[in-house]
């Protein structure tokens, strides 16, 4: 399928600099919010298990790698 040149350039730039300077509100009001702690955490767990806002750690698809 043909994609516009501007979109291809934006993807190229995006994967190069991992930029997340723009945002989409699609997930902002999701009820499936990341928890500060996992259910498996110890009570005194000090780690923040959420990704910080603007993180470039784009979670990939774990389902694809299962099995």
């Amino acid at each position: 399928m043909k994609l516009s040149k501007s979109l291809l350039q934006a993807i190229a730039l995006g994967v190069t600099i991992s930029a997340t300077t723009t945002s989409c509100s699609l997930f902002e009001n999701s009820d499936v919010k990341p928890n500060l702690h996992d259910k498996t955490c110890a009570e005194d767990c000090q780690l923040d298990h959420r990704n910080s806002e603007g993180s470039t750690d784009w979670s990939n698809c774990p389902g694809c790698g299962m099995g």
């Binding site: 979109l7 934006a10 995006g14 979670s59």
Partner: peptide
């Protein structure tokens, strides 16, 4: 697209949205 894997990510680049929209 695995639509439920971005649960940790609040900021999704516009170009990715545009890519999904185009297809």
């Amino acid at each position: 697209w695995s639509f439920d894997t971005l649960y940790k990510q609040r900021n999704i680049p516009d170009w990715f949205i545009e890519l999904l929209t185009a297809f």
